[in-house]
Design a protein around this nucleic acid. Sequence first.
RNA 1: GCUGGCAUAGCUCAAUCGGUAGAGCAACUGAUUUGUAAUCAGUAGGUUGCGGGUUCGAGUCCCAUUGCCAGCUCCA
Length: 646
Amino acid sequence: MEKIRITLPDQSVREFQSGVTGIEIASSISRSLEKEALAVSVNGKVRDLNLPVTSDSSLRIITFDSDEGREIYWHSSSHIMAQAIEELFPGTRFGAGPAIENGFYYDIDSPHSFTPEDFSKIEEKMKEISRRELDIRRRELSRDEAISFFKSTRPDPYKVEILETTIKEDDTVSVYNQGGFTDLCTGPHLPNTGRLKAVKVLSVSSSYWRGDASRQVMQRIYAITFPKQSLLDEHLFQLEEAKKRDHKKLGKQLNLFMFSPLVGRGLPVWLPNGTIVRRTLEAFLRDELLKRGYVEVITPHIGNLDMYRTSGHYPYYSESQFAPMKVEDEEYLLKPMNCPHHHQIYSNQPRSYRDLPLRLAEFGSVYRFEQSGELNGLSRVRGFTQDDAHIYCTHDQLKSELINAIELTQLVFKTFNMPVKTRLSFWDPENKDKYAGSPEMWEQSQQEILEVAQDMGLDYFIGMGEAAFYGPKFDFIVKDAIGRKWQLGTVQVDYVMPERFGLEYVGPENTKLKPVIIHRAPFGSMERFLSILIEHFAGNFPTWLAPVQVAVLPISDVFNEYAASVEKELAAAGIRVRLDLRNEKIGYKIRDWETQKVPYMAVIGGKEAESGSVAIRQHGQGDKGALPVSEFVQKLSSEIASRSLN
RNA sequence: GCUGGCAUAGCUCAAUCGGUAGAGCAACUGAUUUGUAAUCAGUAGGUUGCGGGUUCGAGUCCCAUUGCCAGCUCCA
């Protein structure tokens, strides 16, 4: 029989008989690799382990440690879950069941209405199917054969629809079979159901067949699986951690903000503690803006509807705005964005090229009608405040202004120790009529954005079809302390609004020219940013942001007077301090302030009163020893001024 | 908006088959004078989200409604 040469990732070359399978190659390398192998990549193409390799190839064994390995593992798991559900609840029909970032789901149409009580049954059945050690086998057949198979042999209208629409171009399709269960799938898949070791069904919710609200409602069952129980335990632990950080829960516990049905859904109310955090963030940004040549403005919360007709926002976005209100003979809109107001400030007076760039900044509150099902804590609200600014500049200034704006957002993320990736959001060239402005303008501004990203050495990628209707943008995607990704901050180029609003300036040649506008918001919205920050810090704000920075705790009322003098000294230095004179033991007071996540406690007893010092206790770290009061004030002041993360 | 789930004291939660709404913490009062994550005792706290219905009797069952949560759809 013919020999073939297989090149492994370490560049070693081994000879095998032609027709050797991936699993045989894995087992020739080591027992453990044989056990861990999920699929193979042959010349860059991912395939089933049990398919024969018949020519010289470069080959890589795929395990659970890689993204593609997890995807295959979870995709196969979704088939096993489908089989389990079919055995438990006959009559169920199956829609789509892909792997997702953390686990997988299957959209099903079933006479049974699933509740969390069914989860353990499904888990048990999945483990049972694993113990049956069923081979998972690929079979290729013509599309017509497949259609008749899913019409008569194994009736499933959803699979038929996929065959007749989504993949109608393909002549040959593949199905995978395990025991009595067969699913339409391109694969690849695990070789055997026995690979499934640990499983957790997580939740059930609803979805529409093909995401279309006019079509069949499906039940979507989410689950996750692992090749080892310990990996599942670890994952569940992390889910618990994320839950503990939930900003809605911490917002309540730390008295940061509230909601009231009487105020209205999606309309957050800021409590004194939350207001301190928010105002401190605003002050941080305002200082940085002023340093960078911005000027601050204030505009009203409503605007004449005609202004939004001019901007093109109305009626284009009317379904996501609060309905216009009629006043005398005019109509007004609760403002959904600040831009048009700022454009009016620009055109309030003639502008010369010498006036540019003009950088108008505003913490501007806007109102958008989000669908009720979309509302979520502070992350998705109907009234929020943007840290907005519009930069009006000449075309020559565009690049340096973009750099100026991007540097500010970078500073913000660095301050909170959040790693950031930049998405260059370009238009969708297949769908040009969604956008305003000429194709030439788009090509040009996208080119400029690309150059800026390269010049600044940004860690970037391109997102086709992610642009705003008026221009391309930079979007910043950050990672929080537990590795979750959030889209925050944006810098957008706009050639369209100057046109619509007839904005101009007088150039050096005494001709009228159009400025370019940059829209930018490093936080995006204060509300959403706060929600992310609360979860990022798990409520443990760094000292400069903490609502209360120090609690002064006398151990008995004998020391109240000295404690009050310490409080005074701290307060005089601008430190947010609280004096706890309650008639309680020191352990009680400490516990109470620890749960409030106050960064520092100054414990005061006889020794401290005598020596003019305080015993420092740091949140989460315990006793740090005594310091003279003046030194403590100095230490805190510098920690606050440097916005240290502790 | 759609689908599903949930709603009990300020907070976290209990209440068996439909049979007298309860605990811990917080609050208040008093005692205690305290050294690094909960001192002790007592008091008060409720139209069980709101509105209907079934029943001798509803926190519990049914209908409607408001809000919250998960997801879908949407996101200038």
